[in-house]
């Protein structure tokens, strides 16, 4: 497999196929990152386009001192912050533009029966809603760590802040989310948590 760095180099030389390969390799991650940050699949698709578009514009600025993924994540979080800010401003006029009707398009589990599937769906939807209520900087830390699986150092590079900030934001996010989930503990937690 061709490494990201080689593909980036080819990209800079105007190789369209190389760019397409990078898109294929990362669209999944970027789409999921943006979805977890903005909680809306349509917006996530638009934002993913924007992320790759900006990445393409800046590709010659990529020097390989951070990994390509880190660099792309940084663009993605910036794009999402821009979007969330615009949305915040719009919300002054229209109360809320994330419609609860948007069904989460998580992959269906083949093994589970319809009842379990339904239950799982509810749990995941509530969980996503709870994540969406976290302050944006905490939410980002949590998504980068627990959904995208970044290391603390990578997170500090993506968010461009001290390691202490990363640790603190993540810890706060997890504790806040835990407290939120505790209000529906029967739904989210196993028995040993809500009994003992």
């Amino acid at each position: 497999m061709t490494t990201d760095e080689v593909l980036v180099k080819l990209c800079c030389q105007g190789d369209k196929e190389a760019f397409a390969t990078l898109v294929e390799r990362y669209q999944d991650k970027i789409y999921n990152l943006t979805y977890r940050l903005v909680s809306n699949p349509e917006d996530a698709a638009d934002l993913t386009q924007e992320v790759f578009y900006r990445a393409f514009l800046r590709i010659k600025g990529f020097r390989g001192d951070a990994s390509f993924a880190t660099w792309l994540y940084r663009i993605a979080t910036n794009v999402c912050y821009d979007q969330l800010r615009i949305r915040k401003n719009r919300q002054v006029v229209s109360l809320d533009n994330t419609s609860p009707d948007d069904p989460p398009r998580d992959l269906p589990d083949q093994e589970a029966g319809p009842a379990e599937l339904c239950m799982k769906r509810i749990v995941f939807q509530r969980l996503q809603e709870a994540i969406a209520t976290l302050p944006v900087e905490q939410r980002t830390a949590m998504v980068l760590r627990d959904i995208q699986g970044l290391s603390y150092e990578e997170m500090a590079q993506v968010l461009q802040c001290p390691l202490g900030t990363v640790k603190s934001r993540l810890s706060r996010a997890r504790r806040a989310l835990k407290d939120k989930l505790m209000s529906e503990r029967e739904l989210f937690f196993s028995e040993n948590v809500y009994n003992g």
Binding site: Q27, D28, Y31, N32, Y35, R36, P41, A44, A45, P104, R105, D106, L107, D109, V123, F124, L127, Q128, I131, M142, D146, I147, L177, L181, F188
Partner: peptide, 11 residues
């Protein structure tokens, strides 16, 4: 729980 969130299928 957060880690078990399944990835969304890309359109």
């Amino acid at each position: 729980l957060v880690r078990s969130l399944e990835p969304l299928e890309v359109p």
